[in-house]
Amino acid sequence: MTLRLIQASLSHANGVHALRSVDLHIGAREQVAIIGPSGAGKSSLLNLLATALRPSSGEVQVLGERPWQLSAHQRQRLRARIGLVHQSPPLPPRQRVITAVLAGKLGQWGLGKSLLNLLHPLDIPGARAALARLDLSDKLFAQCQQLSGGQLQRVGIARVLYQAPEVLLADEPVSAMDPVLAAHTLAVLCQHAQEHDVTLVASLHAVDLALTHFPRIIGVRNGQILFDRPASEVSRDLLDTLYANESLQPPPVPETPLSVQIPRC
């Protein structure tokens, strides 16, 4: 298994239980969507898999390693093999887009090369190619503060594509995009994962996008996995249970694909 949680729980310092005894197995090259109401634990789950958070109890296994049994240096090397797309990418406003994208390799470059890259971009063609997949090549030398929220999300995705990780984790990667752009961007992520044998796990609020692009759906509620099924087996009843008593119900799942949707990779 590429990713595995064994009775993993996560409690925050304020006493909130984000995850409760979660068991999860995700194999190599799988493409999985995690859905559920706000506060269900989706981001916490991704951060455990990314080794950004340590479980309060239980075990995490990533790429055949037990990250919290490794030294700090070994764990950092493992993290270089994991790409994490943030909902709000932590990009300094005055940083140029090319620098933000090339930062995807900082975990693999030595200190000297990383410092040199800050002074002079070392791989302009590589950064341009990653941005081109997301229709942003014209923003190569723009400052991040000049971009919209959706454009910043695509820069964050381009950085992870340039990183070329073995595991790609995406936390609400298209939340600031319109439906057409969101569908296109998810299709790019799925195609990249398929072409490069990457394991892809994404959390999504848009149920229709999850069902359209991902063959496996995991429903999370109250810090626990409510269901784990093929997309074809996710029924309206399951979704109603997942989002029960929520003030904001999930968007309706169309009976036939919308014109803006792009077939699953």
Rank of each mutant, 00 (worst) to 15 (best):
M1E: 11
T2S: 11
L3G: 03
L3H: 12
R4N: 08
L5S: 03
I6Q: 12
Q7W: 01
A8F: 01
S11N: 13
V16G: 00
L19S: 00
L19D: 01
L24G: 00
A28V: 10
E30K: 10
Q31F: 02
S38R: 07
G39K: 10
A40E: 06
G41A: 06
S44A: 14
L45I: 09
N47E: 13
L48F: 09
A50M: 08
T51V: 10
R54V: 14
R54G: 08
P55D: 10
G58Q: 08
Q61E: 15
V62E: 08
L63I: 09
E65T: 02
Q69L: 12
L70R: 09
Q74T: 00
R77Y: 03
R77M: 08
I82Y: 04
L84V: 06
H86C: 09
Q87T: 08
S88T: 15
S88I: 08
P89T: 13
P89G: 11
P93C: 02
R96Q: 14
G104Q: 11
K105D: 03
Q108F: 04
W109N: 12
L111F: 14
K113G: 11
S114F: 03
N117K: 00
L118T: 03
L119M: 13
P121E: 01
P121S: 03
L122P: 10
D123Q: 04
I124V: 15
A127Y: 13
R128S: 09
A129G: 02
A130Q: 08
A130W: 05
L131V: 08
A132W: 05
L134A: 05
L134F: 07
L140K: 06
F141H: 15
F141M: 12
C144T: 12
L147Y: 12
L147P: 05
S148V: 07
G149R: 14
Q153W: 11
R154V: 02
V160N: 05
V160H: 06
L161P: 01
E166A: 15
P173F: 05
V174T: 15
V174G: 04
V174R: 14
M177P: 04
L181A: 15
L186T: 08
L186W: 12
V188P: 06
V188H: 07
H192N: 00
V201H: 02
A202K: 04
A202G: 05
S203N: 15
H205C: 03
A206T: 10
V207S: 04
V207F: 10
L209N: 02
F214R: 03
P215W: 01
R216Y: 07
V220A: 10
Q224I: 00
I225D: 09
I225R: 03
L226G: 05
D228V: 11
R229G: 07
S232C: 13
D237C: 00
D240Y: 06
T241H: 14
L242S: 13
E246Y: 01
P250K: 11
V253D: 04
P257A: 10
P257H: 02
Q261A: 01
